[in-house]
C-alpha cells in the first residue's frame, strides 16, 4: 500500500495539476506549488476523502508545507483510528 507521503503527494498533484515528481516535502503549498485559497479548500476536502478522516479546518489550513501536511495527516489518522498500514 502507498505510504502517507505518496498519497499526500498524489492528491496534491491531482488538485494542483502538477506531476508528483515536482513535489518536495519542503514545498510550501502557496509559495512553491501555487495553491490559491480555493485550491486549499479543495486540498483539505480531498485529503479527508483520501484518508477517510475529518480535519479541523483552522488547523488543516494552517499547514504550510507538504512535509507538515504528511505529519499532520498521520497524526489525525492515529487520533481517529484510521489504519495506515493495511
Amino acid at each position: 500500500m502507498a505510504t502517507v507521503e505518496e498519497r499526500v503527494k498524489a492528491v496534491t498533484a491531482q488538485v494542483l495539476k502538477l506531476s508528483e515528481e515536482e513535489i518536495n516535502n519542503e514545498d510550501n503549498f502557496t509559495a512553491d506549488l501555487g495553491a490559491e485559497s480555493v485550491q486549499s479548500i479543495e486540498l483539505v476536502a480531498m485529503f479527508e476523502e483520501e484518508f477517510g478522516i475529518e480535519m479541523d479546518e483552522d488547523a488543516a489550513l494552517a499547514v504550510e508545507t507538504v512535509g507538515t501536511a504528511i505529519e499532520f495527516i498521520t497524526n489525525v489518522c492515529k487520533e481517529q483510528g484510521v489504519d495506515l498500514e493495511g
Binding site: 485559497s37 480555493v38 479548500i41 479543495e42 483539505v44 476536502a45 479541523d56 479546518e57 483552522d58 489550513l61
Partner: peptide, 16 residues
C-alpha cells in the same frame, strides 16, 4: 457552507 467551485465545502471553517 462555503460554496466554492460549484460545490458546498467546509471552506475555511466557522472560525473565519
Amino acid at each position: 457552507s462555503w460554496f466554492v467551485e460549484g460545490i458546498v465545502t467546509k471552506g475555511f471553517g466557522k472560525g473565519k
